[in-house]
Computed example of a mutant assay.
Amino acid sequence: MMLARVQLPWPPSATSPNASGQGKWRSKADAAKGYKLACWALCEAEKIRPVDAIAVDVLVTFCPPSKRRYDLDNALARAKQGLDAVAEAIAVDDSHWRRSTLERGEPCRDGAVIVHIMEAEA
């Protein structure tokens, strides 16, 4: 059963593990913090509330802003702070996300990370 769905913005390139260069850790940290705050605000605006579950299954669909190739592990790393914001909004720590499924979606304007929260399967 679906508990929640939220569409997050595409994460900024500065949050990529590949973006860190010598002396640029501060800009990466600032970008990560800004992305988490933006995602938290979006969860609030979408009225994402705590769910009545100890554990959940999560489906994350990455819809990039262009047809450029990307790998899912880097996309996940870029979106980490946004997913942390979702975990806080639903009040289920991401260590209790039993099954996390990543998938590629179709490119869309400005990009998006769509997160579906479902009851954990037994």
Rank of each mutant, 00 (worst) to 15 (best):
C108H: 05
A29I: 14
A32C: 14
R104Q: 15
S95E: 14
K36E: 01
H96A: 04
V51T: 10
N18C: 12
S20K: 02
L37A: 15
K36W: 00
P64F: 08
D52W: 15
L37V: 06
E46H: 12
L76R: 13
D71K: 13
A87K: 01
K47Y: 15
Q81K: 06
K36G: 04
C108V: 12
G21M: 14
V60W: 00
L83R: 00
A32K: 02
T61W: 03
P50S: 08
A19M: 04
A77T: 04
A31E: 04
A79W: 04
I48R: 05
H96G: 06
Q81H: 08
A75P: 10
L102E: 04
T61S: 13
K67L: 10
G23R: 09
A31Q: 02
E103V: 12
R99N: 12
I54P: 05
S66M: 04
Y70N: 06
K36F: 01
G82S: 03
P64H: 02
D57G: 03
D93V: 03
A31V: 02
R26W: 14
A45F: 15
K33Y: 08
V86S: 00
L72D: 12
T101K: 12
A79R: 01
D94I: 02
R26E: 15
D73M: 14
P65A: 08
R68L: 12
T101Q: 14
A45M: 12
E103Y: 10
G82K: 06
C43M: 04
V86E: 00
A38H: 10
S27I: 11
Q81S: 04
Y35F: 11
D94L: 09
V58C: 02
P64D: 03
S16Y: 07
L76G: 07
A75K: 08
N74E: 14
L72N: 12
A45L: 11
Y70K: 06
C39E: 00
W97Y: 13
C63M: 11
I90R: 01
Y35Q: 05
D52M: 07
D52V: 11
V92N: 00
D30H: 12
C63Y: 05
G21W: 09
V56A: 02
K80M: 08
L83H: 00
R109F: 11
K24S: 13
R99G: 13
I54D: 13
A53N: 02
S100D: 11
K36Y: 01
G34F: 09
T101I: 08
A55I: 05
A38C: 02
F62C: 12
D30V: 03
A31L: 06
D71E: 08
I54N: 10
C39M: 08
E106Y: 15
K24Q: 08
G23K: 09
K33P: 03
D30K: 13
